[in-house]
Design a protein around this nucleic acid. Sequence first.
RNA 1: GCCGGGAUGGCGGAACUGGUAGACGCACCGGACUCAAAAUCCGGCGGUGGCGACAUCGUGGGGGUUCGAUUCCCCCUCCCGGCACCA
Length: 861
Amino acid sequence: MQERYEPSILEPAAQKFWDDNGSFAVGEDPSRPKYYCLCMFPYPSGRLHMGHVRNYTIGDVLTRYMRMQGHNVLQPMGWDAFGLPAENAAMANGVPPAKWTYDNIAYMKQQLKSLGFGIDWTREVTTCRPDYYRWNQWLFLRMLEQGIAYRTTGVVNWDPVDQTVLANEQVIDGRGWRTGALVEKREIPMYYLAITRYAEDLLGALRDLPGWPERVKLMQENWIGRSEGLEIEFEVEGGGTLGVYTTRPDTLCGVTYMAVAAEHPLAQRAARHNPDLQAFIAECQRTGVTEAVLETMEKRGMPLGIHAIHPITGERVPVWVANFVLMSYGTGAVMAVPAHDQRDYEFARRYGLRIHQVIRPADGSLAKLDEEAYLEHGVLINSGQFDGLDFDEAFDAFAKLFEAQGRGRRRVNFRLRDWGISRQRYWGCPIPLIHCADCGVQPVPDDELPVVLPEELVPDGSGNPLNRHAKFLECRCPKCGRPARRETDTMDTFVDSSWYFFRFASAGNERAMVDGRANYWMPVDQYTGGIEHAILHLLYSRFWTRVMRDLGLTAVDEPFQNLLTQGMVLNEIYLRKPAEGRVVYFNPADVDVQVDEKGARVGAVLRADGQPVESAGIGTMSKSKNNGVDPQALVEQYGADTARLFMMFAAPPEQTLEWSDEGVEGAFRFMKRLWRAVHAHVQGGAGVEPLNTHALSPAQREIRRQVHETLAKITNDIGRRRTFNTAIAAVMELMNALAKFDDRSVQGRAVMQEALEIVVLGLSPVVPHACHALWKSLGHERAVIDERWPTVDPAALVREAIEVVVQVNGKLRGRVTVPANADEAQVREAALADEGVQKYTDGKPIRKFVYVRGKLANVVV
RNA sequence: GCCGGGAUGGCGGAACUGGUAGACGCACCGGACUCAAAAUCCGGCGGUGGCGACAUCGUGGGGGUUCGAUUCCCCCUCCCGGCACCA
């Protein structure tokens, strides 16, 4: 065995062994329990970032651990290869998005290999290839047949200078990111998927996902947003009706105005002869489309000069147009109850509208309406015949009344909206439709799929280049055969990522989207990815899986059995603000931190010029803040194992992880210590006698107990809790104890051999390359990758005496050692006899004695 | 604005089901080895008071429940993720 730990030699050797033996290429084996371990596939942005390294290390640790537990483990990898950044890169460099994307994939694949991830590359999936996206198109056509996919209008950001649709990300403070032009809202025809049909199912099934984090389920529940309410029609003076939906029908008699969206027909009609209204509506047209913008902007409105008739009181209620009412939500109109809704309250205050209380607190107290609305449920007042009813009674009474009169009905509503998948962009999956002047919109016949995206175009920022590409555009109508025009909108990239996990399990099938292999592997047993995907990607995947189920393509309802949402990777941000010009950011690698005697930070200087730089806290690694760390450089300097060890040790997987060069250094030191420990043991001579557990000295028994306690802990930490950081800490603690265990006797060496074997096996999921070499050094023929996870020897865990902590009035005052099988009376006796305890109990009557078995006693005096 | 999460020594974190706050690592201080440095090894390391045994305060802030609260409840502050066209 080599004395020095040299990852640059042993890591490629281990990787070559796995490659040559096809260690991670797996097939369907019904005789073994399967385990599908999946990480969210990367967008091929150019290079791996630390978030990827963290994500895939977590997945790889679980892959290798479950494999050692005897499972048939699949860990595939692919590329979420369509998307906006490729078009931006194309604009910047004049290179087609396809070339940029494929180059990036080649580079990043080699990076993944250098990190030693146990991936089955035979199943690689790339979403921008026709053999993948043809099935997007195929399933879209099935959805069209089912009425799940449909066409209607939707609102987009429009850049009037570039004459192009902008993504929300490309709108900065209401202006186009390239042109600086004020962005307008525009309504255009789009395709939607009726995810709302599955709203009830998607919501209810959350209960059957015990393997998902509560916070993610809660976020999805709130996103779907089921509510029960009443749909009510108000008569409009001069003809017509105005439909609204409310979850608070009990406040109906408190309605003092109505508010409609700028795009609402009533607003449009009223504006026809009113220039002020026209100006206001035009202004509403210029606000952003995101919910964050709409909810935080100033709430404004104008009266339309139209009145609705209150369905109970018959009063005239003014109708306003308001910028916070959206045509795309519900009916595009709301009834306003300022006394019992905070937004209505603020709007009424601003415009001097009437605030009319109709609910009083049930406990008889007074509701103060001089500062804010009263939002609680209570008892109805000022509501005529409905006075005195509570929320439920009022709900029922109003529902019955309106249902009898045919002017309203009970209704379950969802906050969830249908999924608009049309993108007016080039680098995406073509929507397989054809526009015929005579036959309208026609689906592309199945036997003409895939509609192949030309890969040589270069977008220039002014619209979709497909619209100028005759070879793509020109086609024949599948119905009448006359010349027709191909649809140029492409699909949202969330479509690509909504089912790729099925395709890994049916890789290479050219005749079907999925086959029987998917039934073997699905559902995914463990899914790991960023918390930022908690809602959209995970909800769309759950929806898509249900559509596939209803089409008979799969038997599973839920794609992901267990979910681990990993935190982000952060790093320091350093900058200088020059008197003039832009802020300059400096990479933390180029900055020296200055500390005082106690190690507390006092400042930082740029190494290049020795001058101070300003610390701007910590933030996610990004290009713009120049605080990224290149995984490649890390692997080159320390090796993949050190990178993996640091990532797993620095924080629990669900929390954010702060980068630390010193921490990496510490991980590297541990790797060297581990290597030296095995080396020193192996140098002790060839061959180790078998362990005789009955012939051990107390010191040998003690160290062996620690070894098996550690094994029990790391098995629980990795297998159940997924707290890799505490598992690693426990092994470090054990290594510290082993370093002090200097026993060259025959049984001493046997104990050490067992200890090191358990350490190497236990660490092999985290640092597989070093363990591959160390396992051989410990005298094993078989590779560690093919070994089983070690088992705890219960006999090794037995203790004769235990220490119990004694508190007096909740404060720690002593410790007593009692036999392991001592009962409460014995512990009480020992505790009260303790000198430190007596100091505080002396002469005082004991009011209570609390005993927590084997751990703690509390004497209350 | 709304939904979700978080805050513990100089720093990252540990304390799993209400039971010893600070495991493990980093930084720092001291020592050994060395001509010296690096590497390595050993020891110390929350604040305050005390020579010391020890006492006392201490888990973002304020209140509550409990024999006992980092953990549960209420209110507040700040930070992070998401908000439907970034992925």
